[in-house]
Design a protein around this nucleic acid. Structure first.
Lengths: 236, 236
DNA sequence: ACCTGCGTTTTTGTATACAAAACACTTGAC
DNA sequence: GTCAAGTGTTTTGTATACAAAAACGCAGGT
């Protein structure tokens, strides 16, 4: 199912960036990366262009590619859009979700509850992923599902650490239950409101973490942080 | 501000596809296109990959690139997402829009009214574009603005012909006024509802046109239309 | 007459070679 | 001593060359 070499390279680079191996602002040298992956510059350049289109790196013509961790402002904006997209999925899903999907949702929710009781953030994390993916799917709009999942994925690294926050899992759990109830009753607007708040909280919690994150960001290589927010061009 | 050669090529190809010069399902031959643009295959391939990421063409590994006009199902889905995104922009803009932007919106709306009176669909079209772009901008979320504008642009060719429909301009005009009023009063939910309906109508009007469009689509080259809807991969 | 297997040809994917622009360093002038 | 201009090096962007896979055609068999 996977296709060309450049896709594998793009995936590998993507993961490396997500995992923080490449510090923000770091330059991605084509020659050395090509050697590292054992390919020529051609497929590597294709991989870089793909990453640029997904917003993970910034390509400055004739100058090179740089890891582009979004600045705080853009991150908050992205979280806001995420919240709205989830709300839309929820509102649509409320009138379209099937009984079996509703049951599936409850099953996943129960697994979440167990993970929360066991104090297992990783387990909760993966079940929580399931929970949201199901809602995307049950929006009955494949295009919406894909777009929402894409942004979800892009925000993943910034969401991950938040479950360690005190009491967050229990709170998240309660919010999930309210969402399920709204969906079960076909109350689209309630589901939307609940989902929006559920995700927006992450954005706000993240907001309060920003300063800490910024310090944690490897001090080296951030020389050109000013780039960040300004130069988004509409991806299409 | 424009960057590499491949970007120009991508723009040109994009326009060619939008304008219907390349029929849906047509194969994009790298060699001949490279010759046509007077470049080598390298930048041309980069352009193709960009188009593939924006969903305009489908690249099948080892087989080639094909023009990928979205099928009716996906188009309806895209219009639905468009309606929701505009609604979100409107709701956010209601609480964030500036007085000057509100005045700007009214000015554009007046220009729309004149165009409608003159029976000038093209004039109405361009002013209508302005109208919506302002709302995107006044959402106060640059990320949202970019994403919404990208989808708007992608749906452009399918929206264009609708203004010719009888009475559509007058109806659209009235809807615009209701949207402005809601924004002026800071009524976010009302603005959202109005905008959602305003855009959804386009999707529905389009829906009734689908069969006609399908016939109009150049009969040649549609041999492989089955591809269309199924294989969307999350654009990121 | 139609299907099948092999060889040819075309076309994609990748590597390498070349051109030109940006960067770094040296050298010279003030 | 500092700044500026020029040269050399590095690195990106593009062209070309090569490898491999798929489409095509043909011949032979059933």
């Amino acid at each position: 199912m996977e296709k060309r070499r450049s896709d594998h390279i793009a995936d590998a680079l993507e993961e490396a960036i997500f995992d923080g191996e490449m510090p923000a602002g770091a330059r991605l040298d084509e020659a050395s990366l090509a050697e590292k992956f054992g390919v020529s510059r051609t497929p590597l350049r294709e991989a870089l262009q793909r990453l640029a289109r997904s917003g993970l790196i910034e390509q400055i013509p004739r100058r090179g590619a740089f890891v582009r961790q979004p600045g705080p402002v853009e991150l908050i904006e992205m979280f806001e859009v995420m919240a709205e997209l989830e709300a839309v999925c929820g509102r649509l899903a409320a009138s379209r979700i099937s009984e079996s999907a509703l049951a599936e949702l409850q099953t996943v929710h129960d697994a979440c509850a167990r993970a929360a009781q066991d104090g297992d953030p990783n387990g909760y994390y993966s079940q929580n992923e399931q929970f949201h993916q199901i809602i995307y799917r049950e929006s009955g709009n494949e295009f919406l599902r894909a777009e929402t999942a894409a942004l979800h994925r892009r925000l993943q690294p910034f969401r991950r650490q938040q479950l360690r926050l005190r009491g967050r899992m229990a709170q998240s759990l309660a919010e999930h239950q309210a969402i399920i109830d709204a969906l079960a009753q076909g109350a689209g607007d309630v589901a939307a409101t609940n989902l929006r708040a559920h995700v927006a909280i992450q954005g706000e919690k993240f907001h309060s973490l920003v300063s800490g994150l910024r310090d944690a960001a490897h001090g080296t290589g951030t020389r050109d942080a000013a780039h960040g927010t300004g130069t988004r061009d509409a991806a299409q």
